[in-house]
Simulated scan of single mutants.
Amino acid sequence: MPRKVRFYAAGVPSHIVQRGNNKQACFFCDDDYGFYIKALSEALIEYKVKLHAFVLMTNHVHLLMTPSDHEGISKVMQSVGRKYVRYINGIYNRTGTLWEGRHKASLIDSERYLLICQRYIELNPVRAKMVDSPEEYTWSSYQHNGIGKTIQCITPHDEYLKLGPSKQSRLNNYRELFTQQIPSEQLHHIRECLIHNYPFGGEEFKTKIEQTLDVKIGQFKQGRPIHIDDKQVN
């Protein structure tokens, strides 16, 4: 079966997911998470990519990034992947692959869906029943976006900045968003868009991407709900 094509566009945010091989763990202690963030931070600067949200789960990662050119995200993922696998293999005296093939990517219609996607990412540990609320999970951008702790590699998206004129008002309004559940149909749509590397947005957004990149994305028909173990995929 041919690989599903991934699309990136300058200035358009993308939701990225990369999983451990065979759903196995890719983080084993706090130092591992810290090294991943360090490698990611260096790559973001080198390739001029902005990171708006992330969560590092035991066996996969979610990232929400906006590149300055169409190659930036791929270069970031390649750079982080190489450094992190080298680090893990060295520390734990292992060999072979760590990640499950290529990462998944879904372009995000920022005006309508960016904050939904950002909430989806930061609620992963809650859906996986690892914590009761997002602020309890350390390795998540909610620490920055919802609590106000400084995470140097985070660049707030314009849609986040629209939440209020001051830092405190934005924090308050952002936390308020988490009192509302993301509808199940939107959760399903986000997951299917990732599986198929398909844009998360309306027809107008899809048409704009096709015109910008001079590609034909095609039609996406949502199938029956996918039953997913949140601890593995989320």
Results as ranks from 00 to 15, higher is better:
V85W: 08
A43M: 00
V49T: 13
N89Q: 14
P67D: 14
I108Y: 06
M130E: 03
R119Q: 12
E42R: 03
D109P: 07
T58S: 09
T58V: 09
R119G: 04
S110I: 01
P125W: 01
M57R: 08
E122R: 00
K48D: 15
N93L: 15
V49N: 03
L107Q: 11
D109W: 07
L107K: 12
W139S: 11
L98C: 13
I88N: 14
R86N: 13
K75A: 09
L64T: 08
N59F: 01
S140K: 01
E42K: 06
V126Q: 02
E136Q: 09
R119A: 10
I91E: 15
K48I: 10
N124Y: 09
L123F: 03
G101K: 07
G96H: 12
L115G: 02
Q78N: 05
A105S: 15
L63F: 15
N89K: 11
H62Q: 05
T97K: 11
I108P: 10
H70Q: 10
M65F: 11
E135G: 04
T58Q: 08
L107P: 14
Y137L: 05
P67G: 13
N89H: 13
E71I: 04
T66H: 10
S133M: 07
Y137M: 05
Q78I: 00
V131M: 01
G101R: 09
H70F: 08
D132T: 03
V55D: 04
I45E: 12
Y113G: 00
K50N: 08
L51K: 05
A53G: 03
Y87C: 07
I108D: 09
T58Y: 03
K75H: 13
G72D: 08
F54K: 01
A43V: 05
P67N: 12
W139A: 07
S106V: 05
L64G: 13
V126I: 06
V85M: 07
H103N: 02
V76W: 10
P125D: 00
Y84S: 10
L98W: 14
M130V: 05
D132S: 05
G81M: 03
E71R: 15
A105C: 14
M57Y: 02
P67T: 14
H60A: 05
L56C: 12
F54L: 04
E136A: 03
H62L: 08
R127M: 01
H60R: 02
I116N: 07
R94H: 15
Y84P: 07
R102F: 05
I91S: 10
L107E: 14
S74P: 02
C117W: 01
K48A: 15
C117L: 01
V55F: 07
R127D: 03
V85R: 14
N93F: 15
E42D: 06
Y120W: 03
K48E: 15
N89F: 14
I73K: 04
K48L: 11
V131Y: 00
M65C: 14
Y87W: 13
R127P: 04
Y120I: 02
D69F: 01
V85S: 09
D132G: 02
V85N: 10
D132R: 09
V61G: 07
T58A: 03
S110D: 09
V131D: 02
T95L: 14
R102L: 08
V76Y: 11
L64N: 11
Q78F: 00
L56D: 08
T66V: 09
D69Y: 04
T66S: 13
H62P: 12
A128P: 05
L56A: 09
A43F: 00
